[in-house]
Write a protein that binds this DNA or RNA. Sequence first.
DNA 1: GTTCTAGAAC
DNA 2: GTTCTAGAAC
Length: 752
Amino acid sequence: MEAMELDRISSPSKGKEEEEDKAKMEEGKAIVVLLVGVPGSGKSTFCDYIIRGSKRPWVRVCQDIIGNGKSGTKTQCLMGASSALKEGKSVLIDRCNMNKEQREDFVKLGGPEVEKHAVVLDLPAKMCISRSVKRTDHEGKLQGGKAAVVINQMLQKKELPKLREGFNRITFCQDEKDVQAAVDTYAALGSLDTLPTGCFGQKKPAKIQLGIMKFLKKVDSPSQEGSERNAPENNSQNKVSREKDCSPGEEGNCSAPSDHVHKEMKHCQDQEMDMPTGAISSDSVYTLAFPSISTADFHFNLEKACDIIVEKVEEFVNKVNNARLVLVDLSHGSKILSLVRTKAAQKKIDSKKFFTFVGDITRLYTEGGLGCNVIANATNWRLKPGGGGVNAAIFNAAGPALESATKERAGSLAPGKALVVPLPSNSPLFAKEGVTHVIHVLGPNMNPQRPNYLNNDYVKGCKVLREAYSSLFEGFATILSTQRGQSKERDGNFFNSQDQKIKRESPYECERNKKVKGLPNELGNDVSPSGERTDNQHHADNGRTTKVWGSWAQALYHIAMHPEKHRKDVLEILDDVVVLDDLYPKAQRHLLVLAQVEGGLDCLADVREQHLQLLKTMHAVGLKWVEKYLNENESLAFRLGYHSVPSMRQLHMHVISQDFNSKHLKNKKHWNSFNSPFFRDSVDVIEEVSKHGKATVKDEENLLNMELRCNRCRSAHPNIPRLKAHINSCQLPFPSALYENQRLVFASGKQR
DNA sequence: GTTCTAGAAC
DNA sequence: GTTCTAGAAC
């Protein structure tokens, strides 16, 4: 009797209709849905609702009753699921499935023909415990006081599912609304319907501020505040970065950065690569791995090729943040890698953004621990598998999915061109390696045995090779501009990407819109509301970032261009700077020193070595005003600096007193824009530009969103009013770094 | 009920 | 950049 093993609830269709449904099933894909959740999270109810309302035949496999109505084993569940799949039914796996090990055999069920989904019922522990404690009729006999102990133990070991375990789709439910939405989604699924792949419903990790609230309730009393005051700044920084490493939904239950990062960093030490310690973790960085183009089978001169690689890499890395390039070669003794490393070091290319790596480009993640979203393929003009080198390896590793996806887009490729191909999710390269795109690129050929032979014409050859790398990196840039702006529907979870902030109502639309409204992305190219690039509005020229500035963001630009027309608004007009009070001062004294240059010097990212003198002038003018203000009120202290990513166009330096006593300081962004690394001290900017020809900008969104800490004692505060109340009276010294290098300017003889 | 935050609109 | 305001947090 089936009911003994499987809690089968058939579709509402009966007789003839059932036959029809069965026939349809043979065309559509069956789905295995693994429920993931502790007892009391509502897994059984979830299944019941789906089965009750669904047009698709479902079978619920419940470990609690699979042993003749009693608790059974995982193997019994696997067998039950397998036989249901053979009948063309979709399966709901109703067991806790709390860790990867528990899930892995289910993910293999039915092979690639069967879709594997996970639905995570990540409801508040309190709720699950209270449900379990109350119930008296639980199938698994887990009820009463025992439930609380078991649930707490399970939660300690909780391991949220990842796409890389082999799931096509993961839905995270963190409240009843989410659960209802997931039920509706699955219940509405007809036999032929499929659901989009990727992670859905992940929300922001537990807010840092919540933790602070709990903390403050216990310790925010005058007598105890000292201990917090003494907390070194580093601790707070570390705390934030660690919490950002949490998987979404972990609610502070995280322990360490992902295994992947460990693996990668360990690998860095083992491998022949110049990736420094402290390099950007792949958690947050889009990575393109590429082989040397044309130097293998196409016999292109190595020296010349290396020069071009370094030249093109330099161009690209100057344009982007938070993306990196990796030159990959199979051979440990690769001459090309060592040449490129040397040249890159000479050019002082940021080794966080570019490094070399020895390994198989098709197994960078699984064998090398290096997560790469995009890989480049040195292909042939027919865009076909074969040839023996990288091209054969990539087509082979990616399976037929890549070949057909490529064919859909182009039939051939000219030398110097590149073709971006999104990798279908059924490609093993996507599933195992986390590669979302392959960029085919064709370089110049110096091999008489191959097509398009250039007969040693290196003038033309170098031109084509340059073009090839430009096309490749532009292709990568296009991926960045769309992937960054849009949701991470496909690859959102593979490398545990940061910035998984998704809104409640319509996660993907909102995320996309937010990016449009927000700061420019790394290339300075915004994304239109439809998610497409609007090239008529955005462009990058000569490495300078550009973006569209709203009308409200133009005010400073107009003043800089025509200061004489704004005499009433400005304090001082000099040859190349204009000084004015900030219209909404965030402190007792807050003025702006505005660069009076034409040609679109809009922000710190646009600053180059040629602007060094201007930066020094701006600093000197700022100091002159500071001196004046200190004469008026010697109790003040000042910082001079820039916002990493300003809201207003035209390079401007803030000169701001550190009291932050202002009615205009209203929100977290205001505070953190002056009191986190987002604020770049002018002295540091000048030093960076004179040493490296450009300034560091820290434009991570989380900097503006980080917890609120006193700029003197670094104590944490739950909200702006509380912070303001605190800073109003805090007299402790500023963090020591501010006293170095004259970052903090105060009246001589006065220790602030 | 009041305070506060954060997203949308400008 | 600010203002407005819904709704979350208290």
